[in-house]
Design a binder for these strands. Structure first.
Lengths: 129, 129
DNA sequence: TCCTTGTTGATAATGATTATCATTTACAAG
DNA sequence: CTTGTAAATGATAATCATTATCAACAAGGA
């Protein structure tokens, strides 16, 4: 028997409605005004669950905090090493035959792939001067 | 004035002498027998410093622990989502013109790129059955 | 209604990493 | 050699994101 609580739905909607690749804290802060009784633990719990169910994905840990993404299609990202801003990079898709060759080279049973670029975002470049 | 302490050198050598992409704890455990007075804090400090100096690189956080690599040349990795085992995947180099197109698309001043595959390593595949 | 099971909020616990601080070390100048 | 200075160290406390705990609650199904 599956249940999909209102909180879980709202957390999912929150992720779907942003392209900032937010942290758990960010989601919590965003929902708190409209969900006064929401607990941070509930956000963590539901993010973990949504991730396990494949409805959201994790973009890894940036500056100590895990970043989530409602967009589960394979796409590349650029991360600012200064402020942590993370943006999508369109147009980079890992071709299936590349996965095959990696499978062969490593023996791993692959389930995902990620391409990530690091650097300074435009705002942080300005601050450098 | 630069100083390159014996500890720092040994930590660097330790990373250069393995392909396991180890954690700070792993390096500490590896060095402790031959460096009885070594402190875990010293390992963390030197890893951070070596990373800032570009002598080693970080492969990101896997299962809550940062993974380091003495190999600074750009290469892809495969990570086991079960046990965290991380292996090199030879033959994947990000071409410079790809960096240029990402630079243009995002406005980021890029400094690095990483390609990472996730899945189950051979050992963990066996355990599944 | 009763029972089972998922969910929640509050909060304590965990654990990797970082900060602190007094002490020691390396090296250069006198 | 002695002294000054800045880096390095070991021990340990502090930080902080994430997890675990637990009692209370809610949603169905029988």
């Amino acid at each position: 028997m599956r249940r999909f609580s209102q909180n879980r739905q709202d957390i999912l909607d929150c992720l779907a409605g942003t392209d900032t690749h937010p942290t758990a804290e960010w989601v919590y802060a965003r929902l708190k005004p409209t969900h006064p009784s929401l607990s941070l633990a509930t956000v963590y719990r539901n993010l973990t669950q949504l991730k396990n169910d494949g409805l959201i994905s994790s973009m890894g840990v940036v500056q100590g905090q895990e970043r989530f993404d409602g967009n589960c299609t394979s796409h590349a990202h650029a991360v600012c090493v200064q402020c942590g801003r993370m943006v999508d990079v369109p147009g980079f898709i890992i071709p299936p035959d590349m996965l095959d060759s990696v499978r062969e080279a490593t023996g791993y049973k692959l389930s995902g792939a990620g391409l990530q670029f690091t650097g300074l975002c435009e705002e942080c470049q300005k601050k450098e001067s």
